[in-house]
Design a protein around this nucleic acid. Sequence first.
DNA 1: TTAATAATGATAACGATTACTGTAATTAGA
DNA 2: TCTAATTACAGTAATCGTTATCATTATTAA
Lengths: 131, 131
Amino acid sequence: MTTLKYSRQRESIKHFLMTTKEHPTADEVYMHVKKDFPNISLGTVYRNLNLLTDIGEAVKISTPDGGDRFDGRTEPHNHFLCTRCGRLLDLELDMKSIEEVNRLAAENFDGLIESSSTLFYGECSDCIKKS
Amino acid sequence: MTTLKYSRQRESIKHFLMTTKEHPTADEVYMHVKKDFPNISLGTVYRNLNLLTDIGEAVKISTPDGGDRFDGRTEPHNHFLCTRCGRLLDLELDMKSIEEVNRLAAENFDGLIESSSTLFYGECSDCIKKS
DNA sequence: TTAATAATGATAACGATTACTGTAATTAGA
DNA sequence: TCTAATTACAGTAATCGTTATCATTATTAA
């Protein structure tokens, strides 16, 4: 086991993830952090995003379109992907509902369900307005 | 709009997807179909997997670990990813539960929810036995 | 049977991510 | 505070999954 050592770059990445409402891709994080660290490397961004994910200070979200997104909110919550514009949004679902889903799923399942993540699809309000 | 033309390769891919219980990656489909078509190209596999997905005869599943998986079952259902062995399994959840989740989610959401896909995490029965 | 065109196999190109390497920053201990 | 040990860095090459290109083959409608 290797000890964690402070770094400004990691702190900046973490801070950005925790304050943004978006769910940026690694490249978007890179672009942002570049403002403070003009010659930060994309590899550093990936390394730290994975590190933060591993120690539970960030969450990785997989979508069927393109690269993974990262989220600084680590409490269980779900996401909505707009099938028109591709935006990924937070979607609140109270803990009870999440637990209820896990319980329902466990009824017909032979293993141990620890958590779940739901991705909802549809049209976001912005796209509905435009149509 | 381009007309669809029959091909043995596509038929074989489709047949495999519909009969297997697994959720193969593109490469696993490739390996399997190779038995009948020894010089099929991986590009052909991808092309047809995407085509089948587009016309609704297959489903693409994104997981946080590595490549996408494909599923010949097109009725709405959910999946379970074992955090130990990485296996992706079907998980039955009756339509009512799925609709209920979508309804609950819609309550606090401003757009239109059309569908959802839940990925459950935990340990599969095989891994539990081994521990 | 033929002409039109969609699908193929082979391979190159691509984008996202990871691995490598020598240098710089952080940290624990004297 | 200085030093030594070690982690993190920037830069870059390599890898992996996937898509695009293209000349050839298979399917299909007339």
